[in-house]
Simulated assay, not measured.
Amino acid sequence: MKHDRDFNPEYGTPVEISPGIRRLTAENPGPFTFRGTNSYLLGSRRLVVVDPGPALPGHLNAILKAADGATIEAILVTHTHMDHSPGARLLKNETGAPIVGCGPHRAARDLFEGEVNPLDSSGDKEHIPDRLLTDSETFTATEFSIETIATPGHTANHLCFAIQGEDIILSADHVMGWSTSIVAPPDGAMRDYMTSIEKMLDRSENTYFPGHGGRIHDAHSYVLDLKQHRLNREASILATVSERERTIKEIVAELYAEVNPSLHPAAGLSVYAHLEDLVERGLVSARPDLSLTAGYKRTA
């Protein structure tokens, strides 16, 4: 097993998952968050808190209780979704610790004329870091040195963090421990996501602690599976639009026939991300334009 599929968090209770690293899961379970959002506490007498999660007073109190008088030196944020970053401002108000990491929320591309972002409410528009971390930058706090890995795809500003000297990456929502990541335009981009997957495969770390779900063992093999899953999905979409023009709704109905219909809208956004990439690569054309309601046809 490559990840802890039977992940049952003890809400409100920090769990030590590696020396000096504790996981505290927010009580916000759901179809897109699994059992909840994982926050990580790095250090002992001095702490870094990674992804304080949603604006839940109970989770904030659990973080402060877990600190148990230790100084919180910094609040590290991986990306600006509402289940990851709003808690950073609450924690800063309580501790004065600076918010460090990803930049403000932004889309992967400009919206088309008349386009409405279907995931607009999921983005944390109020996030402003005190310090922006860039790709390959090292951030040192408490007893850990943390290397930034820019991994756009799930969101345009997504970061993972490698714990230097350890075989560990905090993979946030780029690589999750229970499901594939949502890649949904215009906030996300499939080409960016696949490039970021290759970037992770080029690294040596083989243990991931994700934003949702449990520890990922043998991470290289797991990420290769994720890559192949996306390539298989791309091939299925190409086959679906080879014979005649199809809409995204029609593609989803065929490819996700066994999936709960309540999840079809999310599946549609994933298909849309693949189609955007395929159109950009000249393998598919869109009529009348590149949109959720356009008709798509293979060009070759």
Rank of each mutant, 00 (worst) to 15 (best):
H154D: 02
R203Y: 00
T140L: 11
H154F: 01
E205G: 00
D173Q: 07
S171N: 03
P186M: 09
S179N: 06
M190H: 08
R191A: 02
L170C: 02
E143W: 06
D202R: 06
C160Q: 05
I197S: 00
E143L: 11
S181I: 08
L201I: 09
R191T: 10
S171T: 11
F161I: 02
T151R: 07
D192I: 00
M176T: 04
N206M: 07
E147C: 06
V183T: 00
E147Y: 15
T148I: 10
S136T: 14
D135V: 09
G153R: 00
I146C: 05
Y193P: 00
A156Q: 10
L132R: 15
C160N: 03
E147W: 14
D130M: 04
N157Q: 15
R191W: 07
M176P: 00
T151W: 13
V175C: 08
P185Y: 13
M200F: 10
A189D: 11
I168R: 05
S181C: 03
S196V: 01
S196N: 01
P185E: 02
P186V: 12
M176E: 03
M200L: 14
T195D: 09
A156N: 14
R131K: 15
T195K: 12
G153N: 03
C160S: 04
T134D: 05
M190K: 10
S136H: 15
